[in-house]
Simulated assay, not measured.
Amino acid sequence: MTRHPVPGRPIPPHLQELIAYLLGLKGGRTFESLAAAIQGAYTASTLRRAVDGRMPTEKVVAAFARAARAEAADVGQAEADEAVRLLRAARAEVTAARVAAARAGRKPYMPRRIATLRGLAAAMCRVRLEAGDPSLSALERAGAGALPRSSLALVLAGKRLPSAGLLAAFLTACDASECVTRELNATRDRLDPRPTPPRAARLSDFYPCADADPEIQAAHDRAERSLEIRALCGKTVEEDWYDRQLREEDERRPAWTLSDAEIEAWASEAESRPDTAPPAGELRSALLEMRSRTRPC
């Protein structure tokens, strides 16, 4: 016997359209025969509840449509897809009605400063209620993988701090306002016991060196070129106090501090000047011997 929708229960228009579509597919067949067609995946009572005015699940309406077309070559896939589409439209209609009823005559929800994990969970439950109180399954579908039901259930029960990604996906799925999103994200960051990773050091964090300034470096280069030109022209080059200090320190350097590169540079300079005494070879040997003799033990 065909069971008609429960009388006296208001049924949304899209849900009425789904019920009419499923009953049209069923025709004169009994619910027991439909259950047998899908090999007991759902009982006859479950299939009967899909058309009594209550909101069924997607799996049930898809199985209902396939059972009604079990004898067809395509196994009722097109009818199952159409039934699921009508069901989603009915759910969206019910959710919109709940949101409108929840917001009617009330001020927009604005959470105060929250200091505990339970307070954050209560605020999230309020946001969910403002969105029409969608089910965990609906939120999971809206989150596209970022809102697993098990994790969300623990978060809404106040047993776990939500991750930044889960909270963002939840607020997006519930269409939370910008103010609510900002406040709940700030609350989550305050309650997170993990320390914030240190920021990478930047050059501006340290005391700037004047010589590192490009203009000062360019001025130094111009001064050095000017001294080189004056020396090539045979003009007397006056040393400033800094250059004189560097030269005197270099002249007072112990022989054992000379590197191989410095000794080789002096020997090469001696080779370029034939009138230099002693010759380059003797100079290299003398410097190496002096370095080995004066090296501290």
Rank of each mutant, 00 (worst) to 15 (best):
G281M: 14
L156M: 05
P274A: 01
T236W: 15
S272G: 13
E239N: 06
D221P: 11
T294I: 13
L246V: 13
P108S: 05
L203C: 12
E183K: 05
A92I: 09
T30V: 13
C174A: 07
A131Y: 03
P148V: 00
A280M: 14
A121K: 00
L191G: 08
L203R: 07
R149K: 09
E248P: 06
A223F: 04
A67T: 01
L203G: 08
E17A: 15
I11C: 03
V75G: 14
R225N: 13
L136P: 01
G8C: 09
E58L: 03
L154W: 13
S285K: 14
L171E: 05
S137R: 10
E248L: 15
V51N: 05
P296C: 08
E228V: 15
A102K: 11
D205R: 02
L139R: 06
G281V: 12
P197K: 03
E32Q: 09
A223G: 11
E183F: 15
S150P: 01
C297Q: 15
A280K: 12
D81A: 09
E249L: 15
E71R: 14
W266R: 14
L184I: 04
I229M: 12
M124S: 07
V99T: 09
G27V: 02
L227H: 09
L18G: 03
A169E: 00
A200P: 14
G158E: 09
E32N: 08
V180D: 03
D211Y: 06
A89F: 10
G158S: 02
V127C: 02
L191M: 04
R48W: 00
R85P: 02
E93R: 03
H14Y: 06
C209I: 06
D213W: 11
L288E: 13
T30E: 06
E248D: 10
E282M: 14
A36G: 00
L22T: 05
R112I: 06
E269F: 10
S150K: 08
A218V: 10
N185I: 08
A72V: 13
Y21V: 11
A173Q: 01
A62G: 07
Q39Y: 11
S285W: 15
Y109T: 02
S272N: 09
E32L: 14
R112L: 10
W256D: 10
E228K: 12
D211L: 05
A100N: 12
P7A: 00
R118A: 12
D205K: 12
A131C: 13
F206I: 12
